[in-house]
């Protein structure tokens, strides 16, 4: 039973990969800054190159870390609570609500005021209203009915996206462009305060959900069995749902809709680690950040000097990686199966 050692090795490996992608990302960009020169640039602490590293590239990496880890963690929690592999942070309508909030703000002209805080605020309000609705409707009557919450989330998602399309169809071409640009998602966030908020949220999210890791593991056996094991399932499901929702809400409002991280990364981690949430929560957190930082490198280099929307890369890369991993694990299962 050398499981803890095994787990520590897995996480250490992830940390090494994370360090590698962070370095690669720092060294990637329009201005050619070789890695070997970076210590020297940082030591002098001035010049254009120092400015590029600390004011442009680092904040972007930090945001990619925060958003990638938070979305992946949120997906892991929700897939665990709902015991449904197709659930992802956006299934519950949080992105739809956020997008609707942003669309409303753009159509109302609010984005021209408020120092760049207005759209994230509108996005977060939209997400918060959705979370509130799903929570209230799902938690009403008899504790937390998991299937009910899922269906309500999907329905709210439909209502929100239809309302948004309604706004898009009646507004000006300029506003339309703004909305579409926001929906595609971007890690280009000039406001460093928002990056801080996202980073702190993702770390608090990891700590908060880890307090419920026993409950999350027990919930894998269903609500009834978890109750038999002494778990207060209604309370646990509510807390975990709120943590996952807040993580997603903050990500969506800062970086727009970045799909697939919250669906594919938890799956890949589950296949690699075996689904014990004590390892899953940490490995998804790290895996999501590695994945998004790596995708961001591609987004910035493929059609350089222009930039691809990050969501395009995550969707395409994520999809293929996912299919490869799934196929491989099926082959392994056939070999090891009875």
């Amino acid at each position: 039973m050398s499981k803890p050692i095994h787990q520590l090795m897995f996480i250490s490996g992830q940390l090494v990969i994370l360090a590698v992608v962070v370095l690669a990302s720092i060294a990637t960009g329009e201005a050619n800054i070789p890695i070997s020169q970076i210590p020297e640039i940082v030591r002098t602490g001035e010049g254009t190159e120092y400015f590029i590293l600390t004011q442009i590239r680092m904040p972007r990496i930090v945001l990619a870390f925060a958003v990638g880890s938070a979305l992946s963690l949120s997906g892991t929690i929700l897939q665990g609570v709902f015991r449904n592999p197709l659930v992802e942070p956006y299934t519950l309508g949080i992105s739809g609500g956020a997008a609707f909030g942003v669309a409303l703000a753009i159509v109302g002209g609010l984005h021209l005021t408020g120092h760049g805080y207005m759209l994230p605020l509108a996005g977060f309000s939209g997400a918060a209203v959705t979370i509130f609705l799903v929570g209230i409707l799902g938690f009403l009557r008899g504790g937390a009915d998991i299937t009910r919450m899922l269906l309500i989330g999907v329905m709210i998602s439909f209502v929100a996206s239809s309302s948004m399309m309604f706004l898009m169809s009646v507004t000006t071409a300029e506003n339309l462009h703004g909305i579409i640009f926001w929906i595609m998602g971007s890690l280009d966030e000039p406001n460093h305060h928002l990056i801080k908020v996202a980073t702190i949220t993702s770390i608090i999210g990891l700590a908060g959900s880890y307090l419920f890791v026993n409950q999350l593991n027990a919930l894998q056996l269903g609500k009834n069995k978890a109750t038999h094991l002494g778990i207060n399932t209604t309370f646990s499901v509510r807390i975990l749902f709120i943590v996952a929702s807040l993580l997603t809400g903050v990500c969506v409002s800062v970086a727009g809709v970045i799909g697939f991280v919250g669906l594919a990364v938890p799956h890949i981690m589950r296949l690699m680690t075996g689904g014990d949430h004590r390892l899953m929560l940490i490995s998804s957190f790290l895996g999501g950040s590695i994945f998004l930082i790596a995708c961001d490198i591609l987004a910035r280099t493929v059609i350089s000097p222009n930039e691809l929307p990050i969501g395009v890369i995550t969707g395409i890369i994520g999809g293929f990686v996912f299919m490869i991993v799934l196929n491989k694990s099926r082959i392994q299962k056939e070999h090891h199966g009875k």
Partner: peptide
Amino acid sequence: EGTDMTVQDYVLL
């Protein structure tokens, strides 16, 4: 429940 958990992890719960 037929979960992805190993038998050992399942029993330890």
